[in-house]
Structures are given as C-alpha cells and as structure tokens.
Computed example of a mutant assay.
Amino acid sequence: MAIPQDTNPPKKELRREMRRLVKTLPQENPMVLQLLRDWLAGQPQVKVISTYSPLPGEVDIMPLVTEFPHLRWVFPRVEGGELVLHEVSEPAIDLEPGAFDIREPKTGLPVVDLFHVDAFLCPGLAFDEYGGRLGRGRGFYDRLLEHARGDALKVGVCHKEQLVPHTFGEAHDVVMSRVISG
C-alpha cells in the first residue's frame, strides 16, 4: 500500500509547526494520566485496549498498563507498511526498540485481531475539537483504525498545547471518538 503524501499545504505546514512544538513538550503529564484513569474507570465494556509507546513529546501513558492489570493491553508493531497489534503484559520486558526507534512488542508475542480491540489510545502531533487527528504523515494509524470495529472507541491523547482549531482532515483520516488532553 502506498504511503499517503502531504498534498494539503495547510496540513503540511501544521505538521511542520507541530513537529517543532512536540520537541519541547515533556512525556510526563499527570493531568492526562488522571483523566485517562477516570475515563477507563467509566468504561466497563472496555476489556482489550490498544496503546502506544511514546515518542519524545508524546504523553507517556505506560503507567496505566500496570495500574489496570485486568485489561488486556496491546501495542502496535510495524510490519511492512502496517501496524500489527501484539499483547503485552510487562512493557519493560515485552517491548524493544523497533521501527522508527519506537519501542514495539518483541517478535513472538501473541497477535491480537482488531476485532477484539474495544478501545484505541492514539498519539498524534495535533488534535482538534471535531476529533480530527494529525499524525506524523505515514498513515499507519489511519490504516489500522479504518479496519477497527465500528463500535471501538478511538481516543486521542495529547498535551493541551497540541489542541488546534483544525487539523485539515482528509477523506482517509480517521476521526477520534474523543480527545483527552491536559
């Protein structure tokens, strides 16, 4: 599958601006962690949740994996041009540096079919009030989420500085169910 190219000038400029901004943001964000704890506590239907290993400037939500051990946590691994989800129970042991220097599940961990995922916690460079998400430009999350169950929750996670008026979404961009920021 071809990687989408930035043909939308405002989106391209926003991506450039947000790449500069996230370099200045910390990974720690206690407010976002607490908002996510509260949200998870109110979602009894969520049993399997996809999360991410943070890049510099993305909110580190790894503590949730140990705080909510009753949930089945899955992490993406880049395989070819796609993200494949693998179950992870101990991030410190089960994750290793992978594509783009992001910590990914080790080879051999159980693969989890998208059909089983109830919620996706998604990083991004920017989010807007309409649920628009601006990713890093390679389309990995959009391709993954377009095949998710229709009732699966898609939750953008970010610092308040990453909220923008508009992300200049295009037809291939998957909209978030909600955005949690602080």
Rank of each mutant, 00 (worst) to 15 (best):
G150L: 05
G81L: 11
V155I: 15
V155A: 05
D118P: 06
V179G: 03
D101L: 09
Y52L: 05
P30E: 09
G131T: 04
E58T: 10
K23V: 08
F127S: 02
V48H: 15
M62H: 15
Q162W: 07
V32D: 07
V22Y: 04
A152Q: 11
E129Y: 13
P91Q: 10
P4K: 01
D113M: 07
P76R: 12
H159D: 00
P4M: 02
M31H: 11
K12Q: 15
T51L: 07
L64V: 14
R138E: 09
P91C: 12
G81N: 15
C122M: 09
R15V: 04
K154R: 14
R143M: 00
D128P: 05
G98W: 05
D94S: 10
L121P: 00
K12F: 02
F127D: 00
G139P: 04
L40K: 00
D6H: 00
K23T: 13
M176F: 08
Q34W: 12
V59E: 12
G169H: 07
T51I: 10
C158T: 08
I180K: 02
M18L: 14
H147L: 05
H116W: 14
P69K: 14
R103L: 13
T24V: 02
G42A: 11
V179W: 01
D60R: 06
A2R: 10
W73T: 13
G124I: 06
H86S: 15
R20K: 14
V157D: 06
S181C: 11
R178K: 14
M18R: 14
Q5P: 00
F127K: 02
F127G: 03
E17W: 10
H70C: 04
G132P: 03
C158K: 01
E17M: 13
W39V: 02
R103P: 03
S50V: 05
V174N: 03
I180V: 09
K154N: 03
S181E: 05
V59P: 03
E13M: 07
G139M: 08
G150I: 10
Q43R: 12
F115K: 14
C158D: 02
L25V: 11
L109M: 06
G80C: 13
F75D: 07
P9G: 08
L95Q: 13
A119M: 09
E170Y: 04
L145N: 01
L163I: 12
P10D: 01
G139R: 05
F168T: 04
F68Q: 11
T107K: 15
